[in-house]
């Protein structure tokens, strides 16, 4: 497991940008910035006519590393330790669980907690707990 340095200022500033995006989406379009909700509704069945807007939001996410590269001349640090089987299983669980629970880190963790939603608090505590337990088992058992 590669060590990563403690970056409180950059992390809080980045968090503020995430918050700014969530506030802008609510102010301009009246929508919750929940990435699992947005991404899953790019797939059928289609319940409304917001497809193009959702695709544009996702395209903005994908374009962000390129913008950083254009401005700074390099891509930010990213270390993915998981191998192919773990990526597939992890992806399936993340996709299924976030839609089954109506939200992920952004929808429940950021927007829901900011609205003081009890459902989102229960969801956030639950996914933090199982994520931490999973990391504990993978890294410290055996």
């Amino acid at each position: 497991m590669p060590a990563t340095s403690f970056t409180p200022v950059a992390s809080a500033a980045g968090g503020a940008l995430i918050g700014l995006a969530a506030v802008l989406l609510m102010a301009l379009k009246g929508r919750i910035a929940g990435v699992s909700g947005i991404a899953s509704r790019l797939l059928p069945p289609y319940e409304d006519r917001e497809f193009a807007g959702r695709l544009a939001f996702v395209a903005g996410l994908v374009a962000a590393p390129g913008l950083v590269w254009l401005v700074s001349g390099r891509l930010p640090e990213q270390t993915i330790e998981a191998g192919m089987p773990v990526l597939v299983v992890g992806g399936l669980l993340v996709g299924f669980g976030s839609v089954w629970g109506n939200g992920c880190t952004s929808g429940h963790g950021v927007c829901g907690l900011s609205r003081l939603s009890v459902r989102s608090l229960v969801a956030t505590v639950t996914f933090m707990a199982t994520a931490a337990l999973t990391v504990f088992i993978v890294r410290h058992w055996g």
Binding site: G101, C104, T105, T134
Partner: peptide, 18 residues
Amino acid sequence: AGPAIFGIGWGLSGFCPG
């Protein structure tokens, strides 16, 4: 149940949807 399943996948991979 949903967040419990999501958390396991997050803990395995380090990736959440965003």
